[in-house]
Design a protein around this nucleic acid. Structure first.
Length: 109
DNA sequence: CGTGTGACTCGGT
DNA sequence: GACCGAGCCACAC
């Protein structure tokens, strides 16, 4: 059986690298990651990279949320994402992180 | 090479 | 806080 090998782009590689460093119980935002890889305006590209993320759960993409704390995306189900975050002690309400103080990088503050 | 799309963000109303 | 529009980046076709 053939294994699908998603094309890993240089940008995606950087995204994984940064996302991978997010400690347990911490969060980050797409914009923050974009900034961390040197593309502060590439938040969308970051999202695409995570969407194609082949290294899971090596890359804790569940710890990446929107700048407003909104849980977005997650191909395997947003429901799963919420569960994983709660499992790390993060309080979530209505698909939104209520504790943005746990954000690793906080660009909006 | 132009167009469309997406797990985004910001500013104005 | 919500809605809308525009800017921005990378990728697939």
């Amino acid at each position: 059986m053939k294994k699908i090998i998603p094309p890993i782009t240089p940008l995606a590689s950087l995204v994984y690298s940064v996302t991978q460093q997010i400690p347990r119980g911490r969060l980050s935002t797409y914009g923050a990651i974009a900034q961390a890889i040197g593309r502060p305006r590439a938040a969308r590209a970051v999202g695409q990279a995570l969407n194609r993320n082949p290294y899971w759960p090596v890359v804790p993409c569940q710890r990446v949320v929107g700048s407003t704390g909104q849980l977005t995306g997650f191909a395997t189900g947003l429901n799963k994402k919420r569960q994983l975050l709660q499992q790390e002690g993060i309080v979530i309400k209505n698909n939104c992180v209520t504790d943005l103080a746990r954000v690793f990088y906080q660009p909006h503050l």
